[in-house]
Design a protein around this nucleic acid. Structure first.
Lengths: 143, 143
DNA sequence: TAATAATCTATTAATTTGATAGACTTTAGT
DNA sequence: ACTAAAGTCTATCAAATTAATAGATTATTA
């Protein structure tokens, strides 16, 4: 399951993607519209800013806006940033690999197979899911 | 990521599957072989016993053993039992469905799509991964 | 009936997640 | 220059979940 933090991040990004190239948006506005605790959202947005997904402008008339293009931000990137590994087991993770304490021998471990497959399929599907797709889909559905 | 509890469960089950139809195995043996805290393992095994995956025998010469056939126990069942939902979002979960607090309208939510796909693929792959498969694979790999 | 091994109830420790408070910095407009 | 607006930084705290432990109880077999 994704953490609340991650879900907040996705919702905030979709909100910003809907307003792409329309100038900075206040944290306050995003927080209210998406029902996210403002202070918590601050930390989340800051993290995405440090990851170069967002940019911000301080002072009056400031706020946050998408730095990357909506078609270049996908779910894999966001989930990794917020929650860490996509894989279900650390020993099959590409970005957060850790050897399993339990398994003496990774090579002869019969468990990893299925989870490697799951990882690959998940990555494939989530990588295709970009902010552009999500916004497009919501517009089609007449939001 | 799977919890430690779930990983312990999988390892214990594989251990029992390797000894299918060879009589009861002591908790102690499993705990030592798989490096699982015994008391913690007790709770895990009990839960799987209540779910009719395992049976147990009390008293001298007692222990735990697989009740279901190794080919009938797959990763989906175990993960759901130990950790709950397979899905990444509660609103796309088949067995642990909950409406998203954030989403006002599920029908027009553009986010769910990708996660529904991930859920389906994950279920498909994990359902194919049975104890029988895992044991077979480990034997092939010469464990 | 004694030893063995699972079961049950309760508690505790550790970690992670979610949320908040307040001082500080930058910027725009007057 | 001053002031209000809005993001930034540091620190902490609360809640929830996960992991682990302790001890008494029950059932079984030899």
């Amino acid at each position: 399951m994704l953490s609340k933090k991650c879900k907040y991040a996705i919702h905030a990004l979709v909100y910003l993607a809907e307003r792409y190239q329309q100038g900075p948006v206040h944290i306050q506005d995003i927080a209210e519209a998406q029902h996210i605790p403002k202070k918590f959202l601050e930390a989340i947005l800051l993290e995405m800013r440090n990851a170069k997904i967002l940019h911000s402008k301080k002072g009056k008339g400031g706020g946050y806006y998408l730095y990357k293009k909506p078609e270049d931000v996908n779910m894999v990137e966001i989930i990794r940033l917020m929650d860490g590994a996509i894989s279900l087991l650390p020993c099959v993770s590409l970005n957060y690999y850790e050897p399993c304490e339990e398994c003496r021998d990774e090579v002869t471990c019969g468990i990893r197979d299925a989870f490697t497959g799951v990882r690959d399929e998940t990555l494939k599907l989530l990588a295709k899911s970009t902010l552009a797709h999500i916004v497009k889909r919501q517009r089609e559905l007449g939001k």
